[in-house]
């Protein structure tokens, strides 16, 4: 599954050459660049790429910068707090929490210290700390290792939330998060790690709050985040043969959120499907639906549709986990329903 349509050797703009990297390689490259360029950059955490075979890609960063890559004890609450304190005292820190579900062990520090600290200080503080999480349905993660806590975290003012979906995006967004001076939750999907895509050699950092149109289309807007972007792109591909032209918008960051990109696309298509791996109630899709409902109801020709993970814990059995997944089939069905909705209005 390619993440972009750019070919491996395609020349980029103005002397920037593109190569193909996996998402995991791009992430490691971003960390390596930060280590190289910023002597104050610190990584706390051992398993940036999880426990799978890809984890060895990170070894070269660990080997090159042993004083700035620290392996903490299994103490998420403390080591997230260490990251916050280090960021309050002059370092730029990425704390790798590992599996996103483990962030619950550290909620007092992430949600009640980091998110509030700048505000409580009256803006007299900067807090350049990034919490790195691996979220999502990972095949066999079961109930305690499959969380997508970005929706809960979105209900916490003071945290930036980054959800890259491609190798180029992870490489471009990570330095922006680290340099932003504000606490940030950087959420990668475990299934993204092996995906390949073009990554410019010397790309500029990608600013936070700028959505990316992953596919242009006229008929239906699909807003998707993280791994769901790829599920949506597969669905869009299939629907092309049915004559449905799908636009896929990837917000890339939900805090800050590029509302304009979403509203402009909906203004053109008049139809909106939102795909996301957070649970249905109060999920990422709920908020985006509410924004469009409040701001662009007049543009809608069909009711907004959400393709999300149902409100049940994640089961272990592959037969059951796949049942909950926002698959290309479910997304395609939702898009078709948009086109034939009995509410569907013509302009």
């Amino acid at each position: 599954m390619d993440t972009t349509e750019t070919a491996a050797e395609a020349p980029g703009p103005a002397g920037v050459t593109a190569r193909e990297l996996t998402y995991a390689e791009a992430l490691v490259e971003a960390l390596e660049d930060l280590m190289k360029e910023d002597p104050d950059f610190l990584i706390i955490g051992s398993y940036v790429l999880g426990l799978g075979p890809l984890r060895v890609l990170f070894d070269r960063v660990r080997a090159a910068y042993p004083a700035r890559v620290l392996d903490p004890p299994t103490a998420e609450l403390a080591f997230c707090g260490f990251g916050i304190g280090a960021a309050m005292n002059g370092l730029h820190v990425m704390v790798d929490v590992g599996t996103a579900s483990f962030v619950f062990q550290a909620f007092p520090q992430v949600v009640n210290e980091a998110a509030n600290a700048i505000y409580m200080s009256g803006g007299r503080l900067a807090l350049p700390v990034v919490f790195h999480l691996l979220h999502g349905l990972r095949a066999g993660g079961a109930a305690q290792h499959s969380h997508s806590p970005q929706a809960m975290l979105w209900n916490t003012p003071g945290l930036q939330i980054i959800l890259p979906a491609s190798p180029a995006d992870v490489k471009g967004l990570l330095p922006s998060a680290v340099r932003s001076g504000s606490p940030t939750v950087f959420v990668d999907h475990s299934k993204l790690l092996p995906l390949r895509g073009a990554v410019p050699e010397h790309a500029r950092p990608i600013p936070l709050g700028v959505a990316d149109v992953k596919r242009r289309g006229r008929d239906v807007t699909v807003v998707a985040t993280s791994f769901s972007v790829h599920q949506a792109l597969v669905a869009a591909e299939r629907l092309e043969s049915e004559g449905i032209d799908v636009e896929v918008i990837d917000p890339r960051t939900i805090v800050p959120l590029d509302r304009r990109a979403i509203l402009e696309s909906v203004a053109t298509t008049g139809r909106l499907v939102i795909v996301d791996e957070t649970h249905r109630s109060c999920g990422v899709a709920s908020e985006i639906a509410a924004i469009v409902g409040e701001e662009a109801l007049d543009a809608l020709r069909a009711p907004i549709c959400r393709v999300t993970v149902p409100d049940v814990p994640v089961p272990f059995s592959p037969a059951l986990e796949s049942q909950l997944e926002p698959t290309p089939e479910k997304i395609a069905a939702a898009i078709r329903a948009q086109m034939t909705s009995r509410h569907s209005r013509r302009p």
């Binding site: 610190l42 403390a78 707090g81 009640n112 210290e113 200080s121």
Partner: peptide, 25 residues
């Protein structure tokens, strides 16, 4: 005094993290 916390135990890891930064710098 970069930060005070009204959460019991809140500043303990934060202060230790500031100490870590002092050592690294």
């Amino acid at each position: 005094i970069p930060h005070t916390s009204a959460i019991v135990g809140g500043v303990i890891p934060i202060a230790a993290g500031a100490a870590l930064a002092a050592r690294i710098k």
